[in-house]
Design a protein around this nucleic acid. Structure first.
Length: 298
DNA sequence: CCGACTACCTGCCCGC
DNA sequence: TGCGGGCAGGTAGTCG
């Protein structure tokens, strides 16, 4: 499920439960997700207090007190949830009962947390196991391979049209693939690339280089696209945040922009651009679905 | 170096 | 009802 706004929503949902909590036990249901867990993963985490939760691109960062950071990626199907430790009374000391949800067979990691007098479980569930967790020294985070070449976040003021022009210049690659490239912009995925291009009235098939002037400056269309990328991400985070507000549990399925996508997964639906009479179509680019309206996205 | 393609894994949905 | 095929929000590795 997770693109940047969803990971940010997860971070905000987990922060109240995890920040300031001590990891009493870390349970691993299997030796690997997409990659094997690092050696001594549980041992290095147990007993440590969680300082804060951060995020970079689609990565959740769990900062521990001793300078280690758990770098967690949710892949396609990862989610976290928070539960009260079920067996506060009937438990046998030293035996950790593993709270199970309906598809508990995919609960691969459980953080047993002590927060003041409270005992809390934070459970990572991931049916497809495309997610992964690494352990990195905070001072070396910038050297973490996935972060070393990562593009700017589309939030805040880090992303500029001038920057995108420098990355688009001379590229014949389609806009869709270019925007999916995490080295160009961090955190966009298939959904929000489609949504941003629809908002900007730009075809996903158009070559990225056509949005740059001969002098290497952004065209007006690229300036507009930059704005729409920022908007769609900000709107999605706001939607995720509001859908979370009433839920104590952090359920990864929450807040996928309320499933109110304008083009993503809307094949055959009338285009929602005011005055446009087009129909949303689906094409495949680089092996992945692209949804767009050929009538108003040029 | 770039871009295209594949692999990784499970679940769900659709058509037969 | 069962089965096979296609599809799914991501990344990383290989190959031309």
């Amino acid at each position: 499920m997770p693109e940047l706004p969803e990971v940010e929503t997860v971070r905000r949902g987990l922060a109240p439960a995890m920040e300031g909590a001590r990891v009493r036990k870390l349970h691993l249901g299997r030796p690997d997700l997409r990659f094997p867990f690092p050696e001594d993963f549980a041992e290095l985490i147990e007993g440590k207090t969680i300082i804060s939760l951060g995020r970079r691109a689609k990565y959740l960062l769990i900062e521990l007190e001793d300078g280690l950071t758990i770098v967690s990626h949710l892949g396609m199907s990862g989610s976290f949830r928070v539960e009260a430790e079920a067996d506060a009374e009937g438990s046998i000391p030293g035996v950790f009962h593993h709270p199970r949800s309906k598809d508990g067979k995919h609960d691969h990691v459980v953080f047993y947390l002590d927060k003041g007098e409270e005992r809390i479980c934070v459970i990572y569930n991931d049916p497809r196991r495309f997610g992964f967790m690494h352990l990195v020294e905070r001072s070396k985070l910038d050297l973490y391979p996935a972060f070393a070449e990562l593009g700017p976040e589309p939030t805040g003021n880090t992303l500029s049209a001038d920057y995108l022009a420098s990355r688009f210049d001379g590229k014949s690659q389609p806009l869709k693939s270019t925007l999916l490239d995490q080295k160009v912009i961090a955190g966009l995925g298939n959904i929000y690339v489609c949504e941003a291009l629809w908002r900007a009235h730009l075809s996903p098939l158009r070559a990225a280089g056509t949005l740059v002037t001969k002098g290497g400056k952004p065209t007006a269309k690229l300036v507009y696209l930059t704005e729409k990328i920022r908007d769609v991400i900000a709107d999605a985070i706001a939607a995720g945040g509001s859908s979370l507000r009433d839920h104590i549990q952090t359920d990864g399925t929450l807040g996928y922009f309320q499933h109110s996508f304008s083009v993503y997964d809307q094949e055959g639906q009338p285009c929602r651009t005011p005055g446009c009479r087009g129909t949303v179509e689906r094409v495949v680019q680089a092996g992945r679905s692209t949804f767009y309206c050929a009538a108003c996205q040029k």
